[in-house]
Design a protein around this nucleic acid. Structure first.
Lengths: 206, 206
DNA sequence: TAAAAAACTTGAACTACTTCAAGAAATACA
DNA sequence: TGTATTTCTTGAAGTAGTTCAAGTTTTTTA
């Protein structure tokens, strides 16, 4: 009885988890049932605990991560020894170091869970096989990556043209729930100002 | 005789131009002869004069541009009325506003030739047909776009962690010939500091 | 539920850059 | 080749942010 209950939970969760990715893929391409089977057989989910790293500076990044539940960040440690967050990834986002991934060079970045999270981690050889067996997936990753790059272009525009306070207000308007979800100091560094200044902005002391 | 000479030049140049793109594609995928024919029949090159725009703020960007010869920049006009360059594109680079392209929304950017240039401009419907007829091209654009995004991640790292002078020195070491090629004030804004400060850095007056 | 750890706040002193204004040099064009 | 335009330079004054250090609050963990 406990065993059966556990098994039922496991099966249900297994389908639920992959469904997040399958739904995301379905926004861009249509897969055959056989292709879905193939994909599911290659996917496995992992639980990553808060503060655990999936990539550290100096490692070669050989994996793409898809967030099913939770939140990750990509960050660096600057010359003064402070962490600076360059990117967040929440549910249905991919995160990796594309430069390290494609060029087999050591990464400049850390990728860390900032909540207890569920991810699908796809190793490069597995993904390459999948892309050969299901060529349509090339299209999915092409579109996702072009959109992500488009978002990065806008980010650079905001960083270049707005003051610290304006960047915070814009971000807060666009993602009010997310602002509650991550520590202020991580968001401050993502918006490219200090944690102390964030505190002053929020207190209206600027 | 003049006519023949002109025609010969035209034909030679036509092949030369497309060859730049075909060579770039060949770095990532292998096309059949028939696919190359198909591609060539869909491609046309354009000459764009220095200072001419291929995209203006407010327009919906419906085209991807591949630089065969010359140089382009993507820029915005900030609240003070100054131009700020967000991106350059030289030979064998693609440039477009991916967000406007994918979401059919008005662009925030200008894209302008900063030298007399030759480009291949592919309209969205043409590209979509090509991607259906030559699915391998999805892979090409997927890889190019992921690499470009990887480069953008590094750019954000440099912007976040280095001083103005350090950013200039790094850029100058990595791209010495390019620094000669563009006006200093455009490079200054690309590196996120003022034209005046660039002048002081170069004079060693910092 | 207490203790430890993580995250946030505050003000004062500082600094890396910007802005402005005007002139000089280089480049493009007729 | 000379004139107009674009680009670069310089110094002085200003400011949007940082840094530091110490205290407070919140969250986590045992």
């Amino acid at each position: 009885m406990p065993f059966l209950a556990e098994k039922a939970t496991f099966v249900k969760q297994y389908f639920y988890m992959n469904a997040v990715l399958l739904n995301h893929i379905a926004k861009y391409i249509t897969l055959e049932a056989s292709e879905i089977d193939l994909l599911e057989s290659a996917l496995s989910t992992q639980k990553i605990k808060k503060k655990e790293h999936v990539l550290q500076e100096g490692q070669i990044c050989n994996t793409m991560y898809f967030v099913i539940k939770g939140c990750f960040r990509q960050y660096i440690i600057n010359t003064k020894g402070n962490e600076q967050t360059l990117q967040f990834a929440i549910e249905s986002w991919w995160i990796t170091d594309y430069l390290s991934y494609h060029n087999h060079v050591p990464s400049h970045f850390y990728i860390q869970a900032i909540e207890n999270s569920d991810i699908i981690a796809i190793e490069k050889p597995v993904l390459e096989s999948l892309l050969i067996e299901i060529p349509k997936l090339e299209r999915y990753f092409r579109i996702v990556s072009q959109r992500t790059f488009g978002a990065a272009q806008m980010r650079i525009k905001f960083l270049f043209t707005m003051s610290a306070e304006e960047r915070f207000c814009l971000f807060n308007n666009l993602n009010p729930e997310f602002v509650q979800r991550v520590p202020q100091y991580m968001l401050a560094s993502y918006l490219d100002f200090s944690a102390e200044f964030m505190s002053k902005i929020r207190a209206g002391k600027v």
